[in-house]
Simulated assay, not measured.
Amino acid sequence: MERIKSKIEELANRINAPKEYLPTYGYSEDFARPHIEVKGNELHWVVVERG
């Protein structure tokens, strides 16, 4: 997960993407903010809206 986070932050810095536009990693903040989960060899981009 740390490698994924590092790469996303590297790419976000190139385009000056605000931190609040980036996903969270391994947990959800809810309110449609995406988060990334890793299960086995799979990467999941998850969006949770109001629980």
Rank of each mutant, 00 (worst) to 15 (best):
M1C: 08
M1Y: 10
E2L: 03
I4K: 02
K5L: 04
S6W: 00
S6M: 05
S6D: 06
S6F: 02
K7A: 12
K7R: 13
I8H: 01
I8K: 00
I8Y: 01
I8N: 01
E9V: 03
E9Y: 12
E9S: 05
E10T: 13
L11Q: 11
L11N: 09
L11K: 13
A12G: 08
N13A: 12
N13S: 13
R14W: 08
I15L: 08
I15C: 03
I15D: 02
N16W: 02
N16Q: 10
N16V: 01
N16P: 00
A17T: 11
P18S: 12
P18L: 09
P18F: 05
P18K: 14
P18V: 09
K19V: 10
E20V: 09
E20S: 10
E20K: 11
Y21K: 08
Y21C: 06
Y21N: 05
Y21V: 02
Y21W: 12
L22G: 01
L22R: 04
L22Q: 06
L22E: 03
P23C: 09
P23Q: 08
T24Q: 05
T24F: 06
Y25A: 02
Y25D: 02
Y25W: 11
G26Q: 10
G26S: 11
Y27L: 08
Y27M: 07
Y27V: 10
S28N: 09
S28Y: 05
S28K: 03
E29Q: 09
E29K: 09
E29M: 08
D30N: 10
F31Q: 02
F31G: 00
A32F: 03
A32G: 00
A32W: 01
A32S: 10
R33M: 04
R33A: 00
P34E: 03
P34N: 01
P34H: 03
I36H: 01
I36W: 00
I36G: 00
E37A: 12
E37K: 12
V38H: 07
V38G: 07
V38E: 12
N41D: 15
N41H: 12
N41A: 13
N41T: 13
N41K: 14
E42D: 15
E42Y: 14
E42V: 15
L43C: 07
L43V: 14
L43Q: 06
L43R: 04
L43T: 09
H44F: 15
H44M: 14
H44G: 03
W45R: 05
W45Y: 14
W45K: 02
V46C: 12
V47I: 15
V47Y: 06
V48W: 09
V48F: 06
E49K: 09
R50C: 00
G51N: 04
